[in-house]
Amino acid sequence: MPDSVGLELLAQELREADADSVLDTVFFRDKGAIEVAPATIVATLEFLRDKGFRALMSVHGVDYYPYEPRLGVHYELLDMSSVDRLTVKLRVPLDNPHVASVTPAWPTANHQEREVYDMFGVVFDGHPDMRRILMPEDYEGHPQRRDFPIGGEPVLFTIDETEGTAYTR
């Protein structure tokens, strides 16, 4: 794990490459996290890949309700040779939830970005196949958002769709 000093050095290098990229650094429970501006995510991950973080282990979404900007995307990076882990985070507002997709550079993000889109409504621009993945294709809303109620959703079956037509008989 990079220690808190190593994390700051890494953030400094990122700032030197692009002054607007790093918004915050957090060192929590022996693990470093860098929050970056959403527009710089592709360049940041590319930079960190050259630093040795060659594996992207996870991409997942977070809803920071009631704080703004609400939607967050986390990228878990792993350096297998020096056994290092680093979290890269970004946050986008609800009214403009657009992030550049990292799928062209990291194929593993394909399904995971689709899941974040499905559950939180973050749109990944440049993704080859930006569709829902777990919920039905015609589902409305993004169920993992904190203001999406639990329970009470209508359960869809074929009989609800075609009731009264000859098809069901």
Binding site: F28, R29, K31, M57, S58, V62, R85, T87
Partner: peptide, 20 residues
């Protein structure tokens, strides 16, 4: 309060739990 990503080796690979 905080965010933690906890990876372990499951029979199928890296199983990790992210808790905020």
């Amino acid at each position: 309060p905080g965010e933690v990503y906890f990876p372990i080796e499951s029979p199928r690979g890296e199983l990790a739990c992210f808790v905020r």
